[in-house]
Every structure is written in structure tokens, then in C-alpha cells.
Design a protein around this nucleic acid. Structure first.
Lengths: 340, 340
DNA sequence: TTGTATGCGTTATCAG
DNA sequence: CTGATAACGCATACAA
């Protein structure tokens, strides 16, 4: 049993007394080679444990069948769902995935982009770090015509598709919903509004207030990193506000939950005293008490759509959309019920 | 600006009037080439936008600098933490990751193994699907001496390292803790005890009962898929038990939470009527009310250790451990407080 | 310290 | 339908 040497098309050709060209063609299922020899070759390849050498092939064809993914953090419910969706489509289409985390750092994002560039990925899926501003580190891809698809945390970039939800509309609906529950003193907890998602949500919040003739108050916007801890800190600030706000809209369920728990410990009742709406429809939103009203953000689907779009692009079979907007919707739960 | 053609070491050599061998060596920082020429080459490479061709290199060296990962599901808190840990170590060591999800299906696991084999990954990190029994699909790797590291969901396999926690001990402690809180009628919710983790945990549960002279009752073991829904179904069964159990140990926080919520809706008080202990220290365990006592399972660390071990292995710098056991510990919270 | 020559396993071009 | 042969870009044994 010779198990330490790879079998190549040369080995197959030799045994069958034919040329490597024919073997290569047969293995590719090229219609030009006869069914008979094809079968012979396939059988022997199987028997000898042949596996094609991707490197030789890639070296020759200049393609890698690999997709690069750059994301801020892999271990959040939303992002891991996105990845799962991407993986699903990519695998079924014969693409491999190389994943790189930026950990919300521009430097790491640049390093990751560089690595993926050197790996010659066929295409790139990107969700940007919080404070990425310049997109220069993606120039090499653009120059080489490597297709780039942004999702969730996107940026304006010529010739690149973006996959998003309508963040402004979602935030508008969330806020309007709170107002419809007779809340008028509505705090908004968010991350720094630099990135599209946070800019748009803030916009939606403001617009909803304006449409209902409620003055926008800057001191009602609390900026943090949207962690559970940030939620608890926000709770402390809310506690001090005069008068006590009667609603809180949070750009992230996790943070909302941290805030709710902290407020409850202070004896504040939810939703009686303060109503809550979160964002993402993270599993915790159905565990916290009361259950959290939130925006359903279809992560898995977003991953599938992003991967599908990129692959279509690679196959040349894609009309280029500049932006794809997925449906999101408000999920009503107890945390935003009317005041008693 | 010629941006459509890749620059190679030939281009550099030609411009500098030296041989490609020297360029190749300089780029590898081979000590045999003089500092001066090295500098010249590095500068020009930079200026010309040279990037090394991994495929040509891999074709030559027979290494890929790629690690394959096979996991049941990427979108759980535990697994995405593991992946994050793996990614962190792998990237810093210059390895790429190819990730494949089995979705708990043996077939997909086999397909994934096959793909990764064809991709000639240098090494493999695996967490097995629920009901994988035969490990034949990993034979190709073993034959080719591709190192294999199992983590969490492991199996006995010669020459492979396993990274685990002491599941039996953890379950033993959890159960003993419940008994120490004066609970004696303890239900255990688990997945089918086929895979090591579930076999060991069941063993720990039984042992704890035995050591405290509490008879083991088969009808107190509820088997399901450990989802939140399974937890709710388990709650219905628990509700029917005569007498009502006074404690529940669950092999997974998510499922525990589903069960708790369902029981609470039935008017059963936690922990007064029934105490709970979960497993994993998932974020939901700190959100559910009362907060869930659980076993802290260090996912991120497990990912780091697994990747580190594999890479050490690849570098030949590893003493081969057959099993590495990470520390886990019981985290006490309100769900398992003493009866009033 | 540098250069020459060869092969890694494919695919693609041309000729039969 | 099949075969011979030239790239693809790099690393390295051997020579100088």
C-alpha cells in the first residue's frame, strides 16, 4: 500500500497507456473525450485514490475558488449566523472560505485584507470595523477587479454591492411604535454614529420624533460600545434624568438587556415606567423579562444573499445591484406594552 | 500603470539584472544573501507591488499553510467563541482557516472532510457531529500523516490529540451541588448519550447520585436535542412527574432556559420548587430569571489551545499529548439556591 | 554570495 | 477524439 506518494494524472496516464492530456480532460468531464475512456479513467482514478492538486490547477488557471471574509467579530449571534449563511452557499457552490476577524480594529482589518489579497481570493465579503474610514486597503482588490461585497457595516464604494437592511426605516418604526404606546420621552442608546448602520438608525429615530412633533434632545442620545456593560452604565445615566424617560430604544439587544437588568435592579418597572425596544432579535431578547420588543435582523439570510451575490458576480451571471435591501421587521413583545 | 499583470520574481530579477534564485532567497529572508542586495530587492518588490504566489509556492513545497476546521454548527455562542480563538492563533501564526459546518449530519461531515482533504490542509481541527460513529472519513488524513486534533466532541483515535474539559467531573459537581442544596429528586436533560461529552456527563450525574446514596432512575433522564424547544417539551414531562422533581440539571444552557421559562409559565417557582443547573455559561444564563447556575466552559480558550497544539505539531515542536483537559468550573447563581 | 537548471501537477494550445 | 508540449511562479540541489 503506497500511501505516502500522491497519485497524479501522470500515474493514471501511464497505467492506461494514454496521454495526460486525455486524463486531464476526462477528469474535467470534457465532452470531447469518449464516454468509454472517461469511465476507464474515472474508475482508475477512484481506485488509485487520485485527488486533483488545487495548487497546480490554480497556478495554471489563476483562480482560487476561495472567498475571503472580513468581519468585526465572529462570536456574536448575528455575525455567526451570517457566517453560517455564507458557509452554506459557498460550500454548495464549491468555494472555500477564509475568515479574518478585525476585532473592530482598523489595523487588523488592513492586515486581514492584505493577507486575503496575498491569498488571491476570488472575491471578498466585508463588514467594516466601527471606525474604519478610509477604504484604501481595499484598493488592491478593486484594481485587480476582485469583486467586493459589503454587508451590514457598509460604505460607499463604486462598483461594489452592499447588502443591508433599511436601518433608518427600522429605527423609525421602532421609535414610532414607542410613541404610539404614549411614550414621548425616549432615550436612544447607540454606538458612535460613524458607520452607516448607526448613522441611519439615528436618522430614523430623529425622523420619527420630528414626525410626531416631539423635540429631539441631544442629551437623550447615549453613546457607548453597545456591550451589556455599556447598557448598565447607560442605565445609571437614565436613572439621573429629570424627568425619568418613559422609553428607551437601543441599537443592539445585548446592550438593551444589560440596561433593562440594571434598571430593574434599581426598582424601575419595565414596561410600566420605561418601555424598551432593542435591535437584532438576538436569542436573549426572548429570555429577558419582560421579553424584548426588537427589530428582526435576518443574519443567516444576509450571509446567504451576500455569498450568492458574490458568486453570481464571479460567474459573470450577475446584473450588478449597487445595493440590496433585506426585509426587517419590528417584533412586538412585552417590553414595549402600553403604560398601565 | 500596468495593473492587470502580476509581477513575479522574474520581473524583479530582470530589472535588477540578477537571477531569480537570488530574488527568491532574498524574499524569504535567507541569511545567505547579502544585506545590500536584500534591501535592493525588497525595495523594488515593494515598489512594483509584488506579492508572492502561494500556489506556485505550495506546489513546490507541498505545504498549504492552511488549517481545516470541521464543526457541527458555527452559530452557537460556544462554537463561535471557539472559532474566534482558533482564528486568533492561526492568523498570528500565518495560517489560514477553512471552515466547514456539518450541521450535525454525518454525511455533511464526510463531505467536508473530503473537501478539506482535497484542499490539502496542513492539519485539521474537528468537533464531531452528534451521531458520527465511524471515523473512517478521517483515514485519508491519518494515512497521509496530516495531524488531527479533536476538541469538545471527540472520539478515541490513535495518534490524535483531544482537547476537552472533564465532563464527568463537571456533571458530578453540578449534581453534587444540587444535592447539597437538599435536592434529591433530580432530573437530567441531555442529548443522546452517544458522544463523549454526553456519555461522560451522564456518568458524572450517576456517580454523584450513587455517592450520595440516591437511587438512579432512568425515567429521570430526558433525552432530546438540547434546543430551547426541547427544554419546553421536557418541562411538560417534568410537570407530570409524581412527585414533582426538586431539581433539574441540563447539559446545555439554552435548553435549560427553555425549560425554565416553560415551567415558570406553569406557575412553578425556581429555585423554590425546582432548582436548575445548566452547562456552558452561555450569555443567556445571566439573563434568564433567576440567573442560571452553570458550568463555565472556556470556548475561546479551547479554540486557542486546539490551534496552538496543532500548529506546534506542524512545526514538529510538540510533545504529543493524547488528551488536554481544560479547567471548567461551577458558577453559582440564583437558580440553584436552597429551598426556602 | 550568486547563478543554472529542474520539477512541482495542471491546463491549454496546437497538431494530428 | 487524442497526444505532445509549453507555460504557470516558485524553491532548491548543485555548480561556480
Amino acid at each position: 500500500m503506497s500511501n505516502s506518494k500522491e497519485v497524479t494524472i501522470y500515474d493514471i496516464a501511464r497505467k492506461l497507456n494514454i496521454s495526460i492530456a486525455t486524463v486531464s480532460r476526462a477528469l474535467k468531464d470534457d465532452p470531447v473525450v469518449s464516454k468509454k475512456t472517461k469511465k476507464k479513467i474515472a474508475d482508475l482514478a477512484q481506485e488509485m485514490g487520485y485527488r486533483s492538486n488545487h495548487f497546480a490547477r490554480n497556478l495554471r488557471t489563476q483562480r482560487t475558488n476561495t472567498i475571503g471574509v472580513i468581519i468585526p467579530r465572529i462570536n456574536s449571534h448575528f455575525m455567526s449566523s451570517v457566517i453560517a449563511g455564507i458557509e452554506n452557499v459557498a460550500t454548495s457552490e464549491g468555494y472555500n472560505l477564509i475568515i479574518s476577524q478585525s476585532s473592530e480594529s482598523v489595523e487588523k482589518e488592513m492586515a486581514g485584507a492584505n493577507t486575503l489579497f496575498n491569498n488571491r481570493v476570488d472575491g471578498l465579503l466585508v463588514s467594516l470595523a466601527y471606525d474604519t474610514e478610509s477604504l484604501e486597503h481595499f484598493d488592491p482588490f478593486i484594481k485587480r477587479k476582485v469583486p467586493l461585497v459589503f454587508f451590514d457595516r457598509t460604505a460607499e464604494q463604486k462598483e461594489c454591492t452592499s447588502i443591508v437592511i433599511n436601518n433608518q426605516k427600522a429605527a423609525y418604526e421602532a421609535t414610532t411604535h414607542l410613541i404610539s404606546q404614549s411614550r414621548r420621552n425616549i432615550v436612544y442608546i447607540t454606538a458612535t454614529p460613524k458607520r452607516n448602520v448607526y448613522i441611519d438608525r439615528l436618522q430614523g429615530y430623529k425622523q420619527a420624533l420630528a414626525d410626531q412633533h416631539i423635540p429631539y434632545r441631544e442629551d437623550h442620545v447615549i453613546v457607548g460600545n453597545l456591550s451589556q456593560e455599556a447598557g448598565a452604565e447607560a442605565a445609571a445615566r437614565i436613572r439621573e434624568m429629570q424627568p425619568l424617560p418613559d422609553a428607551v430604544f437601543v441599537a443592539n439587544d445585548n446592550c438593551a438587556v444589560g440596561c433593562m437588568i440594571a434598571l430593574k435592579q434599581m426598582g424601575i418597572r419595565i414596561p410600566e415606567d420605561i418601555a424598551f425596544v432593542g435591535f437584532n432579535n438576538d436569542p436573549v431578547s426572548r429570555v429577558v423579562e419582560p421579553n424584548l420588543t426588537t427589530i428582526n435582523y435576518p443574519g443567516y439570510e444576509m450571509g446567504e444573499v451576500a455569498a450568492r451575490n458574490l458568486i453570481d458576480h464571479l460567474n459573470g451571471s450577475s446584473t450588478i445591484h449597487s445595493t440590496i435591501i433585506l426585509r426587517s421587521e419590528l417584533v412586538l413583545r412585552e417590553s414595549s406594552a402600553s403604560k398601565k
